[in-house]
Design a protein around this nucleic acid. Structure first.
Lengths: 341, 341
DNA sequence: GAATCTATTCAAAGCGCTTTCAATCGGGCT
DNA sequence: AGCCCGATTGAAAGCGCTTTGAATAGATTC
């Protein structure tokens, strides 16, 4: 069923039917009801491509999906998407995933912009200096950055307070008497990793402590890397009495390494991990329960969707969109007072 | 830059330029080169909507994404998507995610089909009786089912041999002398869960053993549920000496429960978990290493993408597409001989 | 030299919508 | 009666691309 047919069925012009369906005010209310009813009865759906072509709007927002194994292809993505989708659903906006090989990433953004497949894109896991911001600005494709990057170009972003979170967490450990604290972080090129490290260092410095570089490590946020780094840390003498871990996934590995070293989490070694709140990994039911800095990545996705709509529909200026979310510290069983030497 | 402009730039008609770019044979080779070169220089990209409208093809395939927390919103999804994307990338096919609330799922498929946003869809995690197959067939929207469902309607599917995998795993445990084996499975409505249970039961029966229903449990495949079910199993007397677990995520919880009960994995209790091969969770580096039934969900995604293209481009008949992948059993450290009573 | 191919190019007609610009019809006003 | 106005509806022009049906020019055939 297309518009034309529907219109002739009703004995109306396409114009009127189109207007009625799209909520234009100049349509007689009675006519509108008739049109709506007929549309429902015939299960009419406007053809997406035609509508897009006519309006110039794509009705979709894009996410470039790097398919390389070691990109951020992990639960973070899907949770974020779920939140985003939750919001976009309301306006029947689709999410277009454009798979890409790592090296072609920029080209893929270019393709998206020029091809008119999407009205805007989401940028995730930015690096400290992220060229995507410049590219998209140049291409004129609206975007919201989830995270932050150093750029003089004004743009919309939403980030959590990584610096503050890890500062807070570190301070908490210091207050518990810990003096040798290890940082198990994501890859250095990512802004969030740098920010977390900054928070960590600031807290130590404020306490008059130097950072032991042997206890700062970065890597992919996987179970395995978490295990390796922790094992390495615990082999040092003296070893750290507390660990700050950038992801729950890594903390799983860290946990194993602690046990493998014959130590007990929460007593011999304390740990605080950053929790993005995954439905399948609950720090509350771990044994011992895991202390975390917590911020729902799903909620962030939802909010980013909202901001995107403001950008697109209400024409809000990108440079007015800067949101920094506070991160709460949830103290649970994996943190305790520093053991006596 | 649009086609019209590019054409007038070149002093050619839109027709010729369009043909040159799309590889039609009736274009002079020299002309084609000129066109290609100009297109590159001007960074020309055909407008996706216009092309879709003209050809009737959407150049995208759809995935309905249930945003409810307790649907399959977990790492399985993203890994599958990554594999799918890897393949679709080659043909510049997009993946359109249509977020939906659980209850509106069917309506979302309907919307996708009628709106012409996608050329086909992927169906994931089917239930034993899955109404989506009927709906899509009726709507005439091509699809490939990842998994299986009971349906008299011919359709394309790719599944792993869940029955065989768990039969094999159970048999292996029996051979090691285990007699009380627990099954920690996904939700019963999913076909894969039913198939795995069937494999489990068949192996026990073939061995002349009755299934102890107290040792069969189903639930969401999360860390937490894995923990709870295992704790319950281990509280029984006599308790099971081996566990069959439907996901690595659950096995993490199971592992904790085993330890919490003061038991040792691989000695007091054996475990075999199903591994979908996540990059962030490696059974080889766990302590002890985890025995698994292994099948890469990412590889499945890639293959489904391939099948989709055969369906769409080559016009292969859906009913000729039935792939059942064997699942390998990888014996590692978490399985050992049954302890003496 | 006329007729027939062959290779190449083009004009124009859609694809199914939205939107501009006009047209129509009563009623209200002067 | 004649004119203006608000409310409602329509005809037609695009949106940027693909594709059909023709046209053109040079090559080949008889």
């Amino acid at each position: 069923m297309k518009l034309k047919e529907l219109a002739s069925h009703l004995g109306l012009s396409q114009t009127t039917v189109s207007r009625a369906l799209n909520g234009y005010p100049e349509v007689n209310e009675e006519t509108r009801q008739r049109v709506m009813e007929a549309a429902r009865r015939h299960d009419y759906r406007p053809n997406a491509s035609a509508r897009r072509l006519a309006t110039g709007r794509a009705g979709a927002i894009g996410i470039v999906l790097p398919t390389d194994r070691n990109m951020l292809l992990d639960p973070h993505y899907i949770e974020f998407q779920a939140g985003l989708g939750e919001r976009l659903l309301r306006d029947e906006i689709d999410i277009v995933l454009s798979p890409t090989k790592g090296s072609d990433e920029l080209a893929t953004y270019r393709r998206m912009a020029l091809g008119g497949r999407v009205d805007a894109v989401i940028l995730s896991s930015p690096t400290v200096v992220d060229e995507r911001v410049g590219l998209l600005t140049e291409l004129g494709l609206p975007f919201v950055l989830h995270g932050r990057t150093e750029s003089h170009i004004p743009h919309a972003w939403l980030d959590i307070d990584n610096e503050g979170a890890f500062h807070h967490a570190t301070k908490h450990l210091l207050d518990l008497g810990h003096r040798r604290i290890g940082l198990i972080n994501g890859e250095t090129r990512h802004t969030f990793a740098r920010d977390r490290e900054n928070g960590f260092r600031r807290a130590l410095n404020a306490h008059g402590l130097a950072v032991d570089e042997a206890f700062v490590a970065n890597g992919l946020m996987t179970d395995e890397i978490g295990y390796r780094i922790t094992a390495r840390f615990l082999a040092e003498r003296p070893r750290p009495t507390a660990l700050l871990v950038s992801s729950m996934m890594m903390s799983l590995g860290a946990f194993r390494a602690i046990r493998a070293a014959g130590l007990e989490l929460g007593r011999d070694v304390s740990m605080i991990a950053h929790d993005d709140v995954f439905p399948f990994l609950n720090p509350d039911v771990m044994v011992p329960t895991m202390s975390t800095t917590r911020s729902s990545i799903r909620a962030a996705g939802k909010r980013v969707g909202e901001l995107l709509m403001e950008l697109l529909v209400e024409g809000r200026a990108p440079e007015t969109i800067h949101e920094l979310w506070p991160v709460e510290l949830v103290v649970r069983g994996s943190t305790g007072p520093a053991p006596r030497d």
